[in-house]
Design a protein around this nucleic acid. Structure first.
Lengths: 124, 124
DNA sequence: TTTTTAATGACAATGCGTTATCATTAGTGC
DNA sequence: GCACTAATGATAACGCATTGTCATTAAAAA
């Protein structure tokens, strides 16, 4: 039987309040605001549970640890700010990807990462 | 003083003979054909040396270990085969990337990964 | 409220990529 | 060929993210 613990609710809330992908440690720190003695193991257990339930999906970032975000969002890609390290979402995706795929190859998925400066950092 | 050892030459040769990015282990196995008792530590040392000399660049793959390829190549992206795990190069890149970047954001770089089945795996 | 047992928290343990150590080997200049 | 010393190979050690262990806690059912 699935129990609705305060830890589980707190972690759920973190993702409801946040639009961008979070690392397990970010989740831990944000959830610890409401559940101070939350443990990292619980975060991992809960994240994996949410993945299995289809509530979350994982985001693989090149050269970084796994991040997580709410599942079922519209197809999107990520913008990584080199100055503040935050990750933002971008709507849509390039429409001429198929043209890049070599003949005979079969494309299933794609991931696109854009790096640069976010609005706040670029505008300073 | 820099010494031109057979290990170094073998590793150099591996990259000269290979068009796609290689993981340290792949480098080890390929170089061991010519230098059978080559050690993994030497591969890492040599890879880092080549990076410093500008002979190689590293390729960050989401969720995988670092790979390496010859530096100074034409701009390209990578295709990752989900069946055999090999990585291939694709010429060119999407030309409407700037349209995705949110207003006020500044784009510096981008990385694109396409996942699927390579020619051999898809054709079987 | 009491019982049951899933979930938690603290921390040990694992896995994997990478780096450090150090005695030994082998380029390089003489 | 010889001396010098950078590079090697074997392996231990490290860093880090992630998972396992287990006594304890607290949801949920009775």
């Amino acid at each position: 039987m699935q129990r609705n613990t305060i830890q589980r609710k707190a972690i759920q809330q973190v993702f409801d309040d946040c639009e961008h992908p979070l690392s397990p440690k970010e989740v831990l720190h944000k959830a610890q605001i409401t559940v101070p003695n939350l443990g990292l193991a619980t975060v991992y257990r809960t994240l994996n549970g949410f993945i299995d339930e289809g509530i979350l999906t994982s985001v693989d970032v090149p050269g970084e640890a796994q991040r997580y975000e709410r599942a079922g969002k519209h197809h999107h890609h990520h913008f990584n700010c080199r100055l503040c390290g935050r990750m933002f979402e971008m709507e849509g995706c390039p429409d001429d990807l198929a043209a890049l795929v070599p003949k005979g190859f079969h494309m299933e998925d794609h991931e696109l990462y854009i790096y640069g400066h976010c609005k706040q950092c670029a505008g300073a």
